[in-house]
């Protein structure tokens, strides 16, 4: 599993709600108001389901889910 295989999956999932915007890997999806809290939970579930990992208490910070880069780093760390 590498960033090249992980990032497109996040990009596709985020693309369902973030439309008409070319989302960069370091765009802060929360700060820029692209998503709401309801979507945050779906994002956590998507991460667990797609990459077969468990997001745990210590992982549950905004910094791990702010950007595609951060989400990718989380997945790589959890799968290491």
């Amino acid at each position: 599993m590498s960033p090249d295989t992980i990032k497109p999956q996040f990009r596709e999932f985020l693309g369902k709600v973030i439309r008409n915007h070319d989302l960069k890997d370091d765009d802060d999806i929360f700060a820029q108001g692209f998503v709401n809290s309801l979507f945050a939970m779906q994002l956590v579930m998507f991460t667990e389901n797609t990459f077969a990992l468990a997001v745990e208490d210590e992982d549950l910070t905004l910094d791990n889910f702010r950007t595609i880069n951060a989400m990718t780093a989380l997945v790589l760390r959890k799968k290491a």
Binding site: F30, L38, A40, M41, E58, L60, T61, L62
Partner: peptide, 15 residues
């Protein structure tokens, strides 16, 4: 505290 700061509503309240 459950979860990190900033995710209290986004993940914990929502779930």
């Amino acid at each position: 505290r459950i979860g990190g700061p900033g995710f209290g509503l986004a993940a914990i309240a929502t779930s």
